[in-house]
């Protein structure tokens, strides 16, 4: 059973400046977390995202494609990255989510991956 751990963190505070002590420490904690997932054999994949200010929205309606800058959401915490893990049940996934630095920094949303339907 796979779970996607979506990391919602404060974009403003998310430091892309890895030269600072705080930024380096934060980056280090994510590296260590990823390593722990790998060592436990539960790691499937992960990525960090650029700030939401770099995002662009695309929508197609009535055959017309609209491209927009944004979004500009009101909430402070934005999707900043994800970890895809393999876990036997929700309790196990929640235990891993709690260890994620994003759970301390912000919020981790745990979503079960939909199983691939049997082909018809």
């Amino acid at each position: 059973m796979q779970y996607l751990l979506l990391c919602y963190v404060d974009d403003e505070k998310r430091s892309y400046n890895l030269s600072g002590d705080e930024g380096r420490a934060l980056y280090g904690s994510y590296v260590a977390y990823r390593q722990a997932l790998q060592d436990a054999g539960v790691f499937v994949g992960s990525n960090a995202l650029q700030a939401v200010s770099t995002a662009t929205q695309v929508r197609v309606s009535d055959g017309k494609t609209t491209v927009l800058d944004g979004p500009y959401p009101d909430t402070k915490e934005q999707l900043g990255g994800y970890f895809l893990i393999e876990a036997p049940d929700l309790d196990s996934a929640l235990a891993w989510a709690a260890r994620c630095p994003a759970a301390t920094e912000g919020t981790v949303e745990v979503r079960p991956i939909m199983p691939t339907p049997v082909s018809v």
């Binding site: 059973m1 036997p88 049940d89 929700l90 309790d91 745990v110 079960p112 939909m114």
Partner: peptide, 14 residues
Amino acid sequence: AAAHIPLRIPPDEN
């Protein structure tokens, strides 16, 4: 069912 909430008595620590 979808999130696999375990149907078991939690371990002692929880």
